[in-house]
């Protein structure tokens, strides 16, 4: 089965490790992630001002590209997912902005590709935006996934970190029935055989893009999250977002300097963990960018 896939710029560059593991897991599960032939950065953040048109144009273009390939598009990065899903809602429900944006898209048709009409029709929200984890649950099925598991991750204590962008705003994202106590990653982890570690900071913010403006502020946030998982005796944290991973993992270097007796914990992408369970080969499991190496923790449970 083929599903259109939007990697987004970070997975194309800095987070290749995430992209690699995710594609390979999908393969093993019988899904081919078919990368959109052309795509651009989605804009990374969804503009909250009601008059934004230019600011959502890039995201709409990507959705329009996806519409030429099918009725769904799968993405991995939490920010991309948030931007695409919210933009999609604007295109479905906000008549005025929809019209304006399509004026730009129609111009694309004329200037870029004169021989073949670039977009067959206006983009009005035809595509459903799916997160990869939703694809695992709804397209593959967690049961089916569990059947393909080669190494059950018994005894591994994993803390699922949701962060902000998957969940909020709940009314639009509808990512999980319980925005304050989501369970989709818990179900995912249970299917892999892990011990799920529930920790109170799983839906709190990692500091996000504030890391660029003011490291101190962002690190204070990410440290709250990391320490909360450590206190609950997690062996590792999983995430869906390269920015979260950067703040939670790479910035542990700073946390070590700042906090006496700081205890490190590895943070990896959820598809890397899935990869370990599915037994994908090492070339698709790249932890070289991680500040805290997850391998010792995995080795302790005989998982690498």
């Amino acid at each position: 089965m083929k599903i259109p896939y939007y990697p987004g710029c970070t997975l194309h560059e800095r987070a290749l490790d995430f992209d690699k593991a995710s594609r390979e897991c999908a393969n093993v599960l019988g899904v081919e992630l078919e990368e959109l032939p052309i795509w651009t950065c989605c804009g990374a953040v969804f503009p909250l001002t009601t008059d934004s048109v230019m600011e959502i144009l890039a995201a709409v273009r990507n959705l329009a590209y996806a519409a030429r390939m099918g009725d769904k598009v799968v993405t991995l990065c939490s920010f991309c997912y948030n931007v695409l899903k919210r933009t999609n809602k604007v295109m479905r429900e906000d008549e005025e902005r929809r019209e304006k944006v399509n004026l730009f898209l129609r111009a694309d048709t004329e200037t870029r590709d004169k021989t073949e009409s670039f977009l067959k029709k206006d983009y009005v929200g035809q595509v459903d935006v799916l997160h990869y984890i939703e694809m695992l649950r709804d397209v593959v099925g967690f049961d089916e996934m569990a059947k393909r598991v080669k190494t059950r991750l018994e005894g591994l204590r994993v803390a699922p970190y949701y962060g902000c962008m998957l969940l909020r705003p709940h009314g639009e994202m509808k990512f999980d029935e319980h925005p304050e106590q989501p369970t989709i990653f818990e179900e995912f982890l249970t299917a892999l055989g892990c011990d799920v570690v529930d920790f109170p900071m799983k839906t709190e913010c990692c500091g996000g893009f504030q890391i660029v403006r003011d490291e101190e502020t962002a690190i204070a946030c990410s440290q709250t999250v990391v320490s909360s998982a450590v206190k609950r005796d997690a062996d590792l944290i999983i995430t869906t977002c390269p920015l979260c991973l950067y703040n939670l993992d790479r910035k542990q270097k700073e946390m070590e300097k700042r906090v006496n007796g700081f205890r490190k914990i590895p943070v990896i992408y959820f598809t890397q963990l899935l990869g370990i369970a599915l037994g994908i080969d090492d070339e698709h499991l790249d932890f070289s960018d991680n500040y805290v190496d997850p391998r010792p923790a995995l080795a302790e449970k005989n998982l690498v």
Partner: peptide, 17 residues
């Protein structure tokens, strides 16, 4: 930052701030 942080972080910060 530009070479180390994920692109989305830099783009996001610039767009918001």
């Amino acid at each position: 930052m530009v070479t180390d942080a994920p692109q989305m972080g830099v783009v996001g910060a610039l767009r918001k701030l």
